[in-house]
Each structure stands twice: as C-alpha cells, then as structure tokens.
C-alpha cells in the first residue's frame, strides 16, 4: 500500500473544473514530482491533499486513513506538511515565531531539538531568528517556509514550486536541501515548473495538463521523452 493514494479526484472552483479525475500515488521514501505548465492544476492538487480544498468525488488516503472530510489543521498532525506556493510565511512575525508556528501541533519538550535540526539545515535562519520575516530575501523566505514545515516532523513533505523566483545558485541550494530532507527519511511530493532539476532528483514523476495526468514515468524516462523535452525542458 502506498503512503499517499489519490484516487479519481475532481476539484472545482465554482463552475471551473480544475482537477479532472486525477489518480496517483506516493510510496514511502520516494521523491515524486508533479510537473506542468502554469494553470495545469498542480497547486490545486496539493491544496486538496492538505485539506484547504475539497474534492467533489474520489478519495485521498494517507497511511491507510481516508482524508475525506478531515479539516486542514488536523491533516498536519497526521504527518503531512505543505509548503504552499509563494511561501506564505507570516510576514509580520519574526523568523523564530514563524518556526514556532510550524511546531504548533508538537509537544513543547521536543521544540529545542527540532529547531536545532532546522538551523543545521538553514544556518542563515539562526542568524536572523529575531528578524521580522517580511524583511528576509526571497531565498531566505523560502528557507523559512521549508524550515517551518519541517518543525511539524512530517512523514510527507509537499513543496509547491520552491524554486520560483530564485537565482540559479539559490535554486541549487534549495534542491540540495530537498535531497537532504529526503536522505533524513522524509518522503517528498514536489511540484515544479523547473522540470530539469526536479526530474533529476525524482524517482517518479507525473505530468499534468489542464487538470489531467497525461504522462507518467521515472524521472530518467521523462527527462529523455521527446514530448517533455519540447514542452518543459526548452527543446
């Protein structure tokens, strides 16, 4: 049984049918990527898994439990952390307060160890722990969003376009950190438009177009596929 099983979900925004009968799975220990152009439905899919949106039909199960009808704030304590598109850190709170919010569902006595673990991955956050988060650079905000998510000790980490708007050096850094999280035992569901880098680190990937999955395969297979090269890898 896969860790995350998405079965035939359909998601609507009013009359807009954004996700059309999507099914996919993520096994424990994998890095799985959803790639697709802007508007394909990647973010909608992640938001449906984390409970911010509801699917009209179909089901989502995580570690054998049905997520249907479970409130978003309860999904976190089941072991899913979601770093949303655009980071959505709490701009007016300090770096440290953001990190504390990430640990909201965890017992207080494990806080010190979790925060040290996050600072080990992101030393820059430690230097800036008292700074107001809105004054961080884009790359630092992404690191904060990822560090904050790790504070809930997720088994599955979902990342929505973590490389968006970052310089090539920072993109490399973010991908290194994703690999490090994966090496430390976290299963990753990644959403990216940067197909090159994400396929390179993914075991498997799904290609989304207009709310449908049109292609799936291992990261290597998809990197060599002519269609993918044309559409997402710049020829």
């Amino acid at each position: 049984m896969a860790m995350l099983e998405v079965n035939n979900i359909n998601v609507y925004y009013g009359s807009i049918h954004a996700i059309k009968n999507i099914s996919f799975e993520v096994n424990s220990g994998e890095i799985v990527t959803l790639i697709g152009a802007n508007g394909a439905g990647k973010s909608t899919t992640l938001q449906t898994i984390s409970g911010l949106l509801r699917s009209k039909t179909g089901s989502i199960t995580f570690m054998g439990k049905n997520l249907g009808g479970i409130a978003a704030h309860k999904v976190v304590s089941m072991g899913i952390a979601h770093v949303p598109e655009g980071r959505r850190i709490f701009q007016q709170m300090t770096v440290e307060e953001n990190i504390e919010m990430g640990a909201f569902t965890r017992p207080g006595n494990e806080y010190e160890q979790s925060v040290q673990n996050v600072f080990a991955h992101f030393p820059r956050l430690q230097e800036r722990r008292k700074q107001i988060a809105g004054t961080l650079s884009g790359g630092e905000q992404q690191m904060l969003a990822m560090g904050r998510a790790m504070m809930s000790k997720p088994s599955l980490l979902m990342l929505d376009e973590p490389s968006m708007g970052l310089s090539p050096i920072l993109v490399d850094e973010i991908f290194e950190i994703i690999k490090a999280f994966h090496d430390s035992g976290t299963t990753i569901l990644l959403v990216e438009q940067n197909a090159n880098k994400s396929l390179a680190i993914s075991g498997r990937a799904y290609v989304l177009e207009n709310g449908k999955i049109v292609l799936t395969g291992t990261g290597k297979e998809l990197m060599q596929s002519e269609e993918i090269k044309k559409a997402y890898l710049g020829g």
């Binding site: 984390s50 409970g51 911010l52 409130a71 978003a72 704030h73 309860k74 976190v76 304590s77 952390a81 979601h82 949303p84 959505r88 850190i89 709490f90 701009q91 007016q92 709170m93 919010m101 990430g102 909201f104 569902t105 904050r148 998510a149 809930s152």
Partner: peptide, 10 residues
C-alpha cells in the same frame, strides 16, 4: 495574517 497558512501549521 494568513488563515490558510495558519491552518497548514495545524
């Protein structure tokens, strides 16, 4: 600041 992000924190 952000109700959606707050829910994602639990």
């Amino acid at each position: 600041e952000d109700k959606g992000a707050a829910q994602l924190m639990g």
